[in-house]
Design a protein around this nucleic acid. Structure first.
Ligand SMILES: [Mg+2]
Length: 236
DNA sequence: GCGACAG
DNA sequence: ATCTTGTCGC
């Protein structure tokens, strides 16, 4: 897919924060198409030894109408890009570290995703511009954040069954939700990235989850990034 | 000033 | 994120 550069990436923290405030105003929350089928997952790994990032994207086709999980998810395309990090990890500025190689992965995809699932937050961010929202603005397609832990916000404990959810609140706003994707397993944190609504984001995460805590596209991207890192480290 | 803090 | 062994539950 074709991606237009939006801004520079290696910025002093204070400038990155200002850029986030400007970009956050452009994020749009709106109903997500009922059933996106071609969904990409993105993730990024890191080797301390090599001081390198391993970005991965896996494009998946979700099944149409399937009453129960586990759903059958098919991998359509996958890409890996390795790069030296341009920024350290700073809580709140994750996208500035991980997006550059992720965008290269997406550029090398033949098919354009209908939506992207991101390992990290969307609007559930101090300035409402988590990595999923930032990526959505650059791509101009719907994105959803699905994080394994919390950056900001508070929530009640969801019921123990898959599908149970409780709102995630931050400064008086609902910024996402804690969603149980498996019975009795720790919830994930779902938030709107861009061009989606929370109900649609939750539907997509549940529709893409096939027997594991994380939705398949994101889980497969994480696995692919890990394999790339291990291959790099193993080959001395 | 102190603590919290996606990946 | 990575580092790193054992341990718990199905
Ligand atoms: Mg990750």
């Amino acid at each position: 897919m074709r991606i237009a550069p939006l801004h520079a990436w290696a910025l002093p923290a204070a400038e990155a924060v200002e850029l986030q405030r400007a970009l956050a105003a452009k994020v749009r929350e709106r109903p997500l198409r009922r059933a996106p089928r071609l969904v990409a997952g993105i993730d990024c790994g890191y080797s301390r030894r090599e001081d390198r990032l391993y970005a991965a994207v896996v494009l998946c086709r979700l099944p149409g109408r399937t009453p129960h999980s586990p759903v059958e998810v098919e991998t359509v395309e996958e890409r890996v890009v390795t790069a030296r990090p341009r920024m350290p990890y700073i809580p709140g500025l994750l996208s500035f570290r991980e997006l550059p190689p992720v965008l290269e992965c997406l550029e090398r995809l033949e098919h354009a995703p209908e939506a992207v699932l991101v390992d990290g937050q969307g609007r559930a961010h101090p300035r409402r511009l988590g990595i999923a929202s930032h990526l959505g603005l650059i791509l101009g397609i719907p994105t959803v954040g699905c994080a394994k832990s919390l950056l900001v916000g508070v929530h009640a404990v969801p019921g123990r069954r898959r599908g149970s959810r409780r709102a995630l609140l931050h400064r008086g706003e609902t910024v996402g939700c804690a969603l149980r994707t498996r019975d009795g397993v720790a919830p994930v944190y779902v938030s709107v990235g861009h061009l989606a609504d929370l109900a649609g984001a939750v539907r997509l995460v549940l529709a893409a989850t096939a027997g594991f805590r994380l939705p398949e596209p994101a889980r497969r991207a994480h696995h692919l990034a890990t394999m790339a890192r291990l291959k790099d480290e193993g080959g001395q």
